[in-house]
Nucleic acid binder design. Structure first.
Length: 482
RNA sequence: GCCGCGUUCGUCUAACGGUUAGGACGUAGCCCUCUCAAGGCUGUAAUACGGGUUCGAUUCCCGUACGCGGUACCA
């Protein structure tokens, strides 16, 4: 086998891409890219009853959104396909037959009801829950009869009686299980489909996967996989079991406590850069104090030995902060592109791109989500229809009216309506009136925007332009002082 | 129940036997300032518990507690 790093993300299409799944995919991808290896996407669609329509499309779409490029997989293809397990049934079948012939697996004719009773009994007797091997004790003759009679059956792997099965985990170190606690796992279901355990091992082998990087929930079934590799005489890949993502109450991340589906995040205004940066840091850190990373930087820095062992709580507040940090790193043009849909929906797409770009430049540093440019800066697109009452109370004094009348006249005739010229007008006017500039600035902000917060006043006025500013001031003077 | 894994500020984490246990988010205060942000400064807050080992334990070992995962013809 080559020494090339080959990893895979192998989701099951039983639901849409989960944040935890996205992180697993990301870690695999970062590891692959860091080592100039390949990232494979394999669809583990062996459970026909739980298949969710559209799930595969969702995985691919969200991976693509996140900037995780698939080197081999369903759409792009590759030398080790097909990449849908449902299209590899013959391969699994052949391998089950081989195990059967070699006595490393056996047919099981037990019914679901029987197995149920058995488990209840085991629990009551405080025994480890595992198949009691009733069918292993069937004579060759009995088994053949049942088979010929067409009795539905599964195929189970035969676990050695008294052995320790261990493996070395890149994150957890040596992990060992006594075979006494390893179940004779079903490898082939009665419907002819393989279970995860069989399909996964067979595919990882033939797809030449060098490192199996997956969630912690697989730790306890890894001994079964190790056994299968041995049965087939195959080299065992390196394992790395990732810590889980947790809800705020430290239970396994799930619905009810926030959004677990990756596709919920883009519409909320989260940047791919922020989400990727955030989940990368959930369980991994670069070893120094940097926090903001691009995908390229993550690829450069990523290493499995800096992955944590303990689960990590998915905490929105830090994600939000990262979102604002990444927004600030974007150019105005990039933000415009991200905003186009929002502008459309808000009926603002008729405004010239140049104008929107200037609004973006002013708002970019004061928002947490791209969409807030639209929600927080309505006054750039429309005259205010009301004035914040608290602001009026605080900033609009009895003498304000006459001051603004005078200022408005000055603004109406200032030769160039630019930041510096406007500031000079304000300063001169304040001086002439023997008041502070802020006594003009605050009421003007209120008159022009209707609110008390926003970008610096002079740059705001410059963007708004003389006509709108003068019009709004005159309207406000009449309305607020009335 | 059985098996496995884990445990540093509220959260994400650094420290791989010797640090005043560091950083970030959040939060509180201050500075800056035309507002709001941003930024700067300061504060807040942690090694689960009990035994060892050691001159010295966050760090190594054992136990307990707690949490989590698995315990399917799901993945």
């Amino acid at each position: 086998m080559s020494t090339e790093v080959r990893v895979r993300y192998a989701p099951s299409p039983t639901g849409f891409l989960h944040i935890g799944g996205l992180r697993t995919a990301l870690y695999n991808y970062l590891f692959a890219r860091h080592h100039d290896g390949k990232f494979v996407l394999r669809v583990e669609d062996t459970d026909r009853s739980r298949y969710v329509e559209g799930a595969v499309e969702d995985f691919m779409h969200m991976l693509n959104w996140a900037g995780i490029e698939v080197d081999e997989g369903p759409v792009v293809g590759g030398p080790f396909g097909p990449y849908y397990q449902s299209e590899r049934l013959d391969l699994y079948r052949q391998h089950v037959d081989r195990l059967l012939e070699e006595g490393k697996a056996y047919r099981c004719f037990c019914t679901a009801e029987r197995l149920d009773q058995m488990r209840k009994f085991q629990e009551k007797s405080k025994l480890p829950p595992k198949y009691d091997r009733t069918c292993l004790r069937l004579s060759a003759e009995e088994a053949r009869k049942k088979l010929e009679a067409g009795e539905p059956h599964t195929v189970r792997m035969r676990v050695p009686d008294d052995a320790t099965v261990g493996f070395s985990d890149l994150i957890r170190g040596e992990v060992a299980f006594s075979s006494f606690n390893i179940d004779d796992q079903v490898l082939l279901k009665s419907d002819g489909y393989p279970t995860y355990h069989l399909a996964n091992v067979v595919d990882d082998h033939y797809m030449q996967i060098s490192h199996v990087i997956r969630g912690e929930e697989w730790v306890s079934s890894t001994p079964k996989h190790v056994l299968l590799y041995r049965y087939f005489g195959w080299e065992v890949p390196q394992f790395a079991h990732l810590p889980l993502l947790l809800n705020p109450d430290r239970s396994k991340m799930s619905k009810r406590q926030g959004d677990v589906e990756a596709r919920a995040y883009p519409p909320k205004g989260y940047l791919r850069e922020a989400l990727v940066n955030f989940i990368a840091l959930l369980g991994w850190n670069p070893g120094d104090e940097r926090e903001i990373f691009t995908m390229e930087e993550l690829i450069r820095e990523f290493s499995i030995d800096r992955i944590h062992k303990a689960g990590a709580v998915f905490n929105l507040e830090k994600l939000n902060w990262l979102n604002t940090m990444h927004i600030r790193r974007k150019t105005d043009d990039e933000i415009y592109e991200l905003l186009s849909g929002e502008l459309e929906r808000s009926g603002l797409s008729s405004f010239p791109r140049e104008y929107v770009l200037r609004v973006i430049a002013l708002m970019k540093e004061r928002i947490n989500f791209v969409g807030e440019i639209v929600t927080f800066s309505g006054y750039f697109f429309q005259d205010p229809d009301s004035y914040d009452p608290d602001g009026v109370r605080k900033r609009w004094k009895p003498e304000t009216k006459s001051h603004l009348v005078r200022l408005t006249d000055e603004l109406d005739k200032v030769p160039s309506f630019t930041h510096d010229a406007l500031e000079a007008v304000f300063r001169d006017c304040a001086e002439a009136l023997s008041i502070k500039a802020s006594d003009l600035i605050h009421p003007v902000r209120l008159a022009v925007s209707g609110v008390t917060l926003g970008p610096g006043l002079f740059e705001m006025l410059e963007v708004l332009g003389r006509e709108a500013v003068v019009r709004r001031l005159r309207t406000a003077i009449a309305r607020v002082s009335a």
